[in-house]
């Protein structure tokens, strides 16, 4: 074995060790469910003029509930344990962004800047997803980047109408994410790195 081959083998080992810590019970159905709930919320806001906080609070609760339900179901179907070390890592990675989103929501609502909240939520979800993406397949990095870009665009363009912005992002992007995850299973991202090397 040459020095170069040994170096390449060390690189492969490093890649494999990183992938060994990835969370793999990501459910495409959870993404689809979250997207559908957000689209229904956006429609309710646009046409039924439902209250802002009630609508998006309900959408968040239902989307989170669907995520937990489908993730637990996927783990069960695979004969896996739901609350693993990787699952805890994911939750811990998401927590700072979630905490910041809650604080900003409260403060901006209190000072009458509710119109900025959709952009802030997109940014915070983007930040949270990017933090998660260190421990997940690449699709989460794509999701986080998309939300970061949409959040920045929404805030910079001064878009304050929550129904279309939330529908297009939390609705459509999550739907697309769910479909991608369902069609291209996340485990494929971790396959056979020795063949790549």
């Amino acid at each position: 074995m040459t020095g170069r081959e040994a170096g390449e083998t060390l690189d492969v080992i490093r890649t494999l060790m990183e992938r060994g810590t990835h969370y793999r019970n990501l459910s495409g159905h959870a993404g689809v469910a979250a997207g559908c709930v957000a689209l229904i919320g956006a429609a309710a806001r646009a046409w039924l003029k439902t209250p802002f906080s009630l609508t998006w609070g309900l959408v968040f609760t239902l989307a989170m509930g669907a995520a937990v339900f489908y993730t637990a179901r996927m783990a069960r179907q695979n004969g896996e344990v739901f609350w693993t070390r990787q699952a805890r890592t994911i939750v811990l990675a998401l927590t700072p962004a979630f905490f910041a989103a809650v604080v900003l929501s409260y403060v901006l609502d209190a000072v009458g800047q509710r119109g900025m909240l959709p952009g802030i939520w997109m940014l915070m979800w983007g930040v949270g997803a990017l933090a998660m993406s260190f421990f997940t397949p690449r699709v989460i990095w794509m999701l986080g980047s998309a939300f970061l870009a949409c959040g920045a665009g929404t805030l910079l363009a001064g878009l304050h109408d929550d129904a279309p912005t939330m529908g297009l992002t939390f609705g459509a992007i999550h739907l697309l994410y769910g479909v991608i995850l369902t069609v291209f299973r996340p485990v494929s991202a971790g396959r056979a790195v020795f063949h790549d090397a």
Partner: peptide, 9 residues
């Protein structure tokens, strides 16, 4: 080696 690398992490 791949198996050992994954299990080590």
């Amino acid at each position: 080696l791949a198996i050992m690398s994954l299990l080590a992490a």
